[in-house]
């Protein structure tokens, strides 16, 4: 499935694609060639928070991500969707350099956060991760008290002067994560004793306690029941006011509910990107259409 000579050349702004009527009259798909691997859709936004250009990721000899370019706008929720192994999580982990921890993983290309190259030698990864927080697939609170979980980030970064400030920050973070009411009385109890959904919101509280600019969420609801999922989605919607959120999800409904833009990945390629409404109602690439209509994935 290597890059075959392209029949259709899509300009990066995605304004026009040569129309190639498909056999299916119900579909508006313009690109029916499954081997077409150039990104369809507009990758740029007006006020980008992060810009990624030509990102390639290799695990040893295997290439996991092929020449991905996209912008992440400020205060938007962007969803990455795609079948398993498509590289969406890999790309997400490039954004705060969590891939650095994987032996044999190599990232090439350019990723900028506010015009600053995050793979630049002079940039400290600790500083980057304080600015780009992350919430993981499986809720992973530290085996410490609820209070200590939220207080950890501000403490290691030295963001507070005294205990009173820290207390206020912990309370505020729990409040913003919508968890305060449930745990107010038991801040000293271990965070691992909470339910799965509460644990995940605790992880979100922990992430926002350091006031990051971007929050990365790697399938944050895949281990949760529908009620807990609904709460997290509601929270994501509220957090959008202050943060830029990148969410990887397997649930297309979730992507449709929470995100403004959606990017569809397939086998390491960014196939299509666009407004969420357009992706789900009017996909331009046959692969995208197949995926969102449940033909594979």
């Amino acid at each position: 499935m290597s890059t075959t000579p392209l029949e259709i050349n899509t300009p990066l702004d995605g304004a026009t694609t040569s129309s190639r009527a498909s056999g299916n009259p119900l579909s508006s798909t313009q690109i029916t060639d499954y081997d077409h691997r150039q990104t369809v859709g507009k990758i740029t936004v007006d006020n980008p928070k992060m810009t990624c250009r030509g990102v390639n990721v290799y695990y040893g000899a295997k290439q996991a991500l092929k020449n991905v370019s996209l912008d992440i706008g400020a205060n938007e929720v962007i969803a990455f969707i795609g079948p398993s192994g498509c590289g969406k999580s890999t790309f997400l982990r490039c954004l705060n350099r969590m891939n650095d921890t994987i032996p044999g993983c190599r990232v090439a290309g350019e990723i900028r956060l506010d015009q600053e190259d995050i793979y630049d030698r002079s940039l400290d990864v600790v500083q980057l991760r304080a600015r780009v927080g992350m919430v993981f697939q499986k809720p992973n609170p530290f085996p410490k008290s609820i209070y200590e979980n939220v207080a950890y980030g501000p403490r290691i970064h030295g963001m507070v002067q005294n205990k009173a400030e820290l207390d206020a920050l912990v309370i505020a973070s729990l409040e913003r994560a919508g968890l305060l009411k449930e745990v107010e009385k038991r801040l000293e109890e271990p965070g691992t004793g909470l339910s799965g959904g509460q644990q995940q919101r605790l992880c979100i509280a922990r992430a926002i306690a350091v006031n990051p600019e971007v929050i990365l969420m790697d399938e944050p609801c895949s281990a949760l029941d529908p009620i807990a999922t609904a709460k997290i989605e509601e929270l994501i919607d509220e957090l959008r006011e202050n943060y830029t959120i990148v969410i990887v999800t397997h649930s297309m409904q979730q992507a449709a509910r929470v995100s403004q833009r959606t990017a569809y990945f397939h086998l390491g390629d960014l196939i299509e990107i666009g407004e969420t409404d357009q992706i789900f109602t009017n996909p331009r690439h046959k692969l995208t259409e197949d995926y969102i209509t449940g033909r594979f994935g």
Binding site: L128, R129, G153, A207
Partner: peptide, 23 residues
């Protein structure tokens, strides 16, 4: 020690030594 704890600490911006020492 499960890798999720390491990831959590690193994701918070802990340095490697802090990750090891604290968690």
């Amino acid at each position: 020690v499960p890798p999720s704890i390491r990831e959590a600490a690193l994701g918070m911006g802990a340095s490697k030594l802090q990750m090891v020492g604290h968690h």
